[in-house]
Simulated assay, not measured.
Amino acid sequence: MADVQKYLEYNDPLTIIVRSGSPTDPYKDRADSLPVINNMITLLEIPSKADRVTIAGMTEIDQEVFENRPHLSPTEFLVNYSIGAVQVHSSLEGTAQLCRFKGKGLIMYPASRIYALTNRNPDVVVTLQDYIEEIQVKLNETYDGIARLEQTILQSVEATNNAILATDNANKATQDAQSAAELARSAYDTTRLVFKEPVATLQNIPSKYPSPLVGWTVQTYKDGKRYRFDGSRWIEIDVFGSNLQVVNEFKDGLMSVLDYQKLKSFPVDLKEQVIAFSLPDAVQGVIENFIPFPFSGEITELSGYCATSGEMVTSLSLERTRDLKNWSEVTDRRLQFEPNQNFDDKKVTFKSSIVSKGDIFRINLNQQGLGIYNITVLLKIKI
């Protein structure tokens, strides 16, 4: 239960962000379509009293006029310029009204200062922060329960797969024994060649062709060797292109000297891959735009720019995963846009710049500056 005195202290003050109204920091023109709830319209910013609030087809009245009236007419409204609240006639309940004004700034209330009386006892107070903390505890308990359930399901699936695999292996062993007896009676099978798709190395052949027949022939494209299955094992029978020599700077081989020199002249930049994250109207939080990277490499740069700069600091972090469940932050010092800057401050650093084949990346908008729009983040990886 919350302590009233605790929240009367200045531990969690209100935060008010205001513009000066000067030529270098002018008030912001606003035109917002806002709903009428309980005869009130809540403006998105504190309005400038000098520039007034206008609503199409309606007339603003002063507080002194309203105090001498029993109620507002359907075409009148009253503005509280200190908090940005507009009072209207009850006949407009549930409608949306276009409010035009010049915004001076915002008032932000901490959750610890929004409270409710419990059992009508003024000494017993529950704040919004209390509810948030209680909800977070319940969420954490739920997440733990889900994780345990998922682990149990995975173990069950693994046990089922192992049982199926054991049955398949037993059936395959029986079939292999029968096939061996039949192949022993087929003398022609000892000389025939049945060419199959090549693989990288000899170690890849059993996984690619787990149940070969006598005569199957597979070439390994890394060394050009050919292997033939004789009924029990793979035997090397020849090397394709064994008479071809590798090229050097002085003699033609698998390519000409001219092509070899041209290949050596290519710049290292050709080995850099760029991943672009386009965030035209992103809001603060994780951006659900996942991009996998199919090569191993090293991160060389993370940079960004925006079409419209923000009025406060904006920071973004780069995160990666391999299973779309467990995400880790790559950045040590995050990508950051200073106020009123269209480009990042070029001070980002990384916890680890090594990239593994199959890594999946995403952007987390940790802090969104007011007014920033259309952000593009570029990730360069050298392979």
Rank of each mutant, 00 (worst) to 15 (best):
K208C: 05
E133H: 14
Q368I: 03
D123N: 12
R362C: 03
A173G: 15
V126T: 15
N243D: 11
S186T: 01
V246F: 12
L258I: 13
L149D: 08
D144Y: 13
D123V: 04
K102Q: 14
R148L: 14
W327R: 00
L8A: 00
D168R: 11
Q175R: 15
F277P: 11
G241H: 00
D252A: 09
G224K: 08
F250N: 13
R52P: 01
I205H: 02
R333D: 15
P339G: 03
Q245C: 00
I17Y: 11
R226G: 03
V88A: 01
S232C: 03
D130H: 13
E288N: 14
R30D: 01
I381W: 07
F101W: 14
T142L: 14
M1C: 03
W327K: 12
E197M: 11
S33E: 15
N204Y: 11
I17S: 11
N169M: 09
V4L: 15
V79A: 01
V283M: 05
L324D: 05
S352K: 07
F195L: 09
S353Y: 07
A147G: 09
T308A: 14
S356G: 04
L263N: 14
D12R: 06
F266L: 15
D269M: 06
A187N: 10
L139G: 06
M58G: 02
Y115P: 02
K104S: 04
S309T: 04
R362D: 04
I237E: 13
F337G: 12
F361A: 07
A276C: 08
E329A: 00
S82G: 03
A173C: 07
L44K: 15
F343H: 08
Q203T: 10
P206M: 04
Q284L: 03
G231I: 07
